[in-house]
């Protein structure tokens, strides 16, 4: 089944490993992925806080470009996923907004007629392919790797989507089938601070510290994330957390697609493991040699 791929800005830079591993996993599962031509910014949080209607309109440009292709849109960044879904919902539920956006897009020869489904890749893997089918294609068991599954906020909220908003389990089920051990991680949907790391670092550092502490206390060997912002906050700022709170965290933070790709037999290089700031080499060697 083909999909339209909306990478989003982060997957071109700090989260390249997410882009690389996602493409690889889709390829190995024989899912066609067509990158949307000339996509623009989704109208994310920061845009939304300046000008809501304009944010929805530029967001709708993407939907208008994607609709004629006729495939579901895969948006791996939680923020893009939420904003694109939100634009679709606003247009569906509010006739005035629908008309205004329609009028803004029309002179450019674009229109959006509400026929798209916006999907997160985790949803695609679990619900379109299915955990069982993925398990049958495992080339390299995750051999008891202890994972803290971190869903973050915007993948399950505010919409009631493919998983529970308080206690999602899709990623846990997936990794269990791939041979990993899911550690108890009650903070799985707690916010990482998002862009507060830039604007109010003191607040964000505390949130990140709490998350790392929870993962470590429960014996996680790594944290699996579904979002670029969660990944960078939890990984790149561990040093600052350690300096600020006198802790000694050194927990690798991976994209869930990197781990799925590993189980499907892809080479670590193809999955962007060389881009990690906190080494995962030791575990990686154990897993790839087994």
């Amino acid at each position: 089944m083909p999909y339209t791929y909306y990478p989003g800005c982060s997957l071109e830079s700090t989260s390249r490993a997410y882009d690389e591993s996602l493409r690889k996993v889709f390829e190995l599962l024989k899912l066609e992925l067509h990158e949307l031509t000339d996509w623009n910014c989704c109208g994310a949080t920061m845009y939304m806080s300046i000008d809501g209607p304009l944010a929805s309109t530029i967001s709708a440009r993407n939907l208008a470009l994607a609709e004629p292709l006729g495939y579901d849109v895969v948006a791996p960044c939680s923020s893009c996923f939420t904003i694109l879904s939100k634009t679709h919902r606003l247009m569906r539920e509010n006739a005035e907004i629908r008309t205004r956006i329609g009028e803004a897009l029309a002179p450019a020869g674009l229109k959006y007629e509400l026929n798209l489904r916006i999907r997160h890749p985790l949803d695609v893997l679990v619900n379109d392919v299915g955990v069982e089918l993925i398990r049958l294609q495992v080339k390299r068991d995750l051999a008891g790797l202890r994972i803290a599954n971190y869903y973050g906020c915007q993948i399950v909220r505010p919409e009631r989507g493919f998983d529970d908003r308080e206690n999602p389990t899709t990623m846990d089920n997936l990794f269990e089938a791939l041979g990993a051990v899911n550690v108890y991680f009650p903070m799985k949907v707690r916010c990482c601070g998002g862009m507060l790391m830039t604007t109010y670092p003191e607040v964000a550092l505390k949130l990140v510290k709490d998350l790392l502490e929870c993962a470590e206390e429960n014996g996680a060997e790594c944290i699996a994330t579904t979002c670029p912002l969660c990944q960078i906050n939890l990984e790149a700022y561990q040093g600052r957390v350690n300096a600020r709170f006198e802790t000694k965290f050194k927990i690798p933070v991976l994209f869930f697609t990197q781990l799925v790709g590993l189980a499907l037999g892809a080479s670590p290089r193809d999955l962007g493991f060389h881009r990690q700031l906190i080494p995962f080499e030791h575990k990686l060697m154990q897993l790839t040699e087994a």
């Binding site: 996509w39 309109t57 450019a108 881009r275």
Partner: peptide
């Protein structure tokens, strides 16, 4: 780690995007 691209990303049809933005503002 190759996570900071030096080449700036931008879309091709910037003209179309700015016409959409201008239209929202004028409406």
């Amino acid at each position: 780690k190759g996570r900071v691209p030096l080449k700036s990303t931008k879309i091709k049809d910037r003209k179309q995007l700015s016409s959409i933005i201008r239209r929202v503002l004028s409406m």
